[in-house]
Design a protein around this nucleic acid. Structure first.
Length: 288
DNA sequence: ATCGAACCTCCAAT
DNA sequence: AATTGGAGGTTCG
């Protein structure tokens, strides 16, 4: 157990359960029913976190420097939300969301897991995406046993590539099986290096991602935003499409084809496009 | 170039 | 109890 951060506002609940990452689950602490545990698997490690007043606490495993560094990076604790809030606190369509979900961060996930997760997201809802990512891990990830039992790390590209399209169909991926299999082959062979994409600018990284089967503009922008540190990304899914048309686009009184929404929003929100996206998205989904 | 339909599977709502 | 429709998209014709 240990305090990961203090002072800075961090909203663990909204961050971990807002559809960015798919291996987090909530439960109640067996010792203190009031306390909400957030359990997830990152980097092959099962982690349990709780939110206390102005801090994020590590419950398991025993905190050490490596783990704190891992979480500090994953939770993107260094993101300057104040700059975003300051610029958009008075924005007609963002002010409420900023108040309600203050402390919601954009995560910095592993690009590989993020890529596969969002390929699986096509035509699926969040519970199903979670279920598929879990099945993939159980199917071909590495079993790890800790004090709490056995869990499965997300597979490496080689593990997933070896698993193959047919096995992926077998665990329920449907038409996405082919995409995941091909993507795995591309990453495993080194044809595309995801880590390398961090060094490229937004457009160059986007162009690379679009070469991967099953990856279109939306999925690519999710990977860019949630794992490759491109905070000016703007994934347009059905919810964002909806909310943008109901608000800014309507207000502007313009006709905008779907495939132009992303660029238009990026111009509007600039370096905070990703954060604007997440706050608009989350608020719109919660109030549906 | 643009625009629907098709694609797998699960599950909630008829 | 069987059937239909839709879910955070991409691809193909």
């Amino acid at each position: 157990m240990g305090i990961l951060i203090e002072k800075e506002s961090y909203n663990l609940n909204e961050t971990l359960h807002s559809g960015q990452a798919f291996r987090w689950n909530k439960s109640h602490s067996p010792t203190n029913h009031e306390r909400v545990l957030h359990e997830g698997i990152i980097d092959g490690v099962r982690v349990r976190l709780v939110q206390s007043q102005n801090a994020v606490e590590i419950i398991t495993p025993p905190s050490n420097k490596h783990l704190r560094n891992l979480l500090y990076k994953y939770l993107a604790i260094n993101h300057d939300l104040e700059a975003f809030y300051k610029e958009f606190a008075k924005d007609q369509y963002l002010s409420n969301s900023i108040k309600t979900y203050r402390g919601l961060h954009i995560l910095r996930q592993d690009p590989w897991e993020c890529l596969i997760s969002f390929i699986c997201s096509a035509n699926n809802n969040i519970p199903r995406i979670k279920s598929l990512v879990e099945s993939i891990s159980v199917g071909c990830g590495t079993p790890v046993t800790d004090d709490l039992g056995t869990y499965y790390s997300f597979p490496t590209p080689k593990q997933l590539n070896d698993f193959g399209e047919q096995s992926l169909r077998g665990i329920g991926l449907g038409f996405r099986a082919k995409y995941v299999a091909k993507a795995s082959a591309m990453i495993d062979s080194g044809q595309i290096s995801l880590e390398h994409l961090k060094a490229l600018d937004y457009n160059a990284a986007l162009a690379e991602l679009l070469k991967i089967p099953g990856v279109g503009d939306k999925v690519a922008n999710c990977v860019l935003l949630f794992s490759l540190e491109k905070l000016d990304s703007f994934p347009v899914d059905v919810w964002i499409n909806r909310v943008m048309k109901e608000t800014y686009i309507k207000e502007a009184g313009i006709e905008l084809p779907n495939n132009a929404i992303r660029g238009w929003a990026q111009t509007k929100f600039g370096p905070f496009a990703g954060y604007a996206n997440q706050y608009l998205f989350h608020a719109r989904r919660m109030t549906n």
